[in-house]
Structure formats: structure tokens, C-alpha cells
Simulated assay, not measured.
Amino acid sequence: MSTNAILEVKNLAKAFAANKVLHHVNFEVKQGEIVGLLGPNGSGKSTLLNIISGFVGPDAGEIRLVGRSIAGMPTYRLVQEGMARTFQLPIMPQKMSVLEVAMAAATDAHGVFSTLFRTARDRAAERRALERARHLLDELLLTRVAHLPASAISGGQKKLLGIVCALMAEPRLLMLDEPTAGVHPNVRNDIVQALHRLNASGVTLVIVEHDMHFIRDACSRCIVLDQGEIVASCRPDELASNARVVQAYLGASVEVAKA
């Protein structure tokens, strides 16, 4: 695999009882890419994302982050190593503001606010985290709702807040699980622009998504899974002419990709 790969997956396999979900999956993501991870329902996308991000263990295979083996590493260690992820349906606390949720993500990632009597170094770290939280809320267009209860903001804004929380750990690699599912089209466009800004700042992105318009606008390359195997790695504008992709989607993706 190439020397500038931030993520390398080799011969990854996973089965649940007799159900073989992933079959010797191989791919890499280069530093600075925005890669879409696509596939029909049941293709293995969610399992692959969960294995890479440490929520499910692989049966076989190797995963490397910037050359370091991370297969089976617990999630908190993956955050420390520079990987973060979001979830399709983020659940927000009832009594915390948007800003407080972002700050709590910094606490979870770095453990800097855990003691009752804080040292000057702890207070300085807290100030830096507050500055970062406010900056990210501004970048993700959430400043005007920063002091509202996180549970009261819209579904699209919760998606954006989930991205803010993941970014509080300052990851090199951010993995997004269907960031536009159930999101208003206007917010979808905001997410696309925000992701391009994040990528320009040095964050590599892997995005699990069904929205082909979003993939076309956001991603530079697509990896397509079908029945636990990679059937394509190509640019978004090549999807409609790829016979394996068309077969995987039974024609469903063709009209959308051409739209």
C-alpha cells in the first residue's frame, strides 16, 4: 500500500454466526481524501465502519492508521491515535446546551476537566477547549443555537453538533455515518461546505452515505461494497458507468447518479 495512506484495511473479514458479512476487504484512504463508502442495504457498510472505529472486533485482517496497527483497539485509544466518528442518529442530553455538549466531548476525549481542584494547566486546557468549541460551532453554523438545549435543536443541527463533538478530539481521520439522513436540503448544502472546509484544514474524511447527490458534491472518490466485497473504487462521476455498481444497486443508482 502507498506510503501516504492514513487508513489501510487488509483482508478484513467478519461473520455473525453463519452470516458472512465481510469477505477479505482491502482498501486504503490517502491523507487529504474525502472518500464515500457506498453500497446497498446489507452490503456490510455499517459493520465495516463499526470494525474500523473499534465498536466491533474483526474475525481476521489488519487495520492500520498512519502505519500503526489498530485492529481491536478500544475506541478511546482510537480517539487518542487520531480517529473519530459520528453516528447516524445522535442522541443529545436533555439538560445540556449545545456549547456544553461540545465541551463535554472535549472532556471525554482528553480527560482534562475530571478533577474537582484544577491546576493552572487544567484551566488553560479548558480555555483552549472552549475556544475550539466556539470556533467549531461557528464553522458548523451552530453559533446562534449554542446556548439552546441540545435536545431542542433540529435533526440537521444535531448532525452538525455530532460532527463538532467528533472534531473536539482534533482527529486526523473523521468517519461520518450518514450525515445527511433526514436532513433538510438546505442543511445538506451547509454540511457539504463545512466538510470541504474541514478537509482543507487537514482532516481526512470517510463518509457512509446513500445520498448520491451528496456524494457527488462532497467526495473525491467512492468505495462501493456489495455483499461484503468491494466492487468498485472510482470517482463519483464514474459510478453510473460501472457495471459492478449498477448490478449491486439493480439499476437504482444509475438514474440518481445521472440526475
Rank of each mutant, 00 (worst) to 15 (best):
D211K: 09
V56Q: 06
V254P: 01
H23N: 11
L49G: 00
T86L: 11
A181E: 04
I215F: 09
R121F: 12
R77I: 06
G61C: 06
N19G: 07
M103D: 00
S2P: 15
M175S: 05
G54Q: 02
G156N: 07
L99C: 15
L142E: 01
S151E: 07
A120L: 15
E178H: 02
G155H: 12
G57P: 07
L78T: 03
A60E: 05
G251F: 08
P74I: 04
S220A: 07
A13W: 06
H196I: 05
A194H: 04
N41E: 04
R216G: 11
C234W: 10
L89H: 10
G42Y: 05
T204D: 03
A17G: 15
N19L: 15
M83H: 07
I207R: 05
E209N: 00
K159Y: 03
E209K: 00
T119A: 08
L7I: 06
S53E: 01
A194L: 12
Q227W: 01
A152T: 10
V256R: 10
H210Q: 11
H184L: 15
L78C: 11
A166W: 00
K258M: 14
I63V: 09
V224N: 01
C222M: 14
K159R: 14
L37M: 14
E209T: 00
L49Y: 03
A105F: 03
V256H: 08
F113R: 14
L239M: 10
P149I: 01
N11H: 08
A17W: 13
H147K: 11
H184Y: 12
H213P: 02
A5L: 15
E238D: 06
S69H: 12
V256Q: 12
E170C: 14
C219W: 02
F87A: 09
I51N: 00
L65K: 02
L136Q: 08
A105C: 09
R144W: 09
G111L: 03
F113M: 13
A71P: 04
T143Q: 10
V187I: 15
G32V: 12
V25E: 02
S154F: 04
M96C: 13
A240I: 07
F55H: 11
A17Q: 13
I52E: 02
E28G: 11
K45S: 00
T180D: 00
V246G: 00
L148N: 09
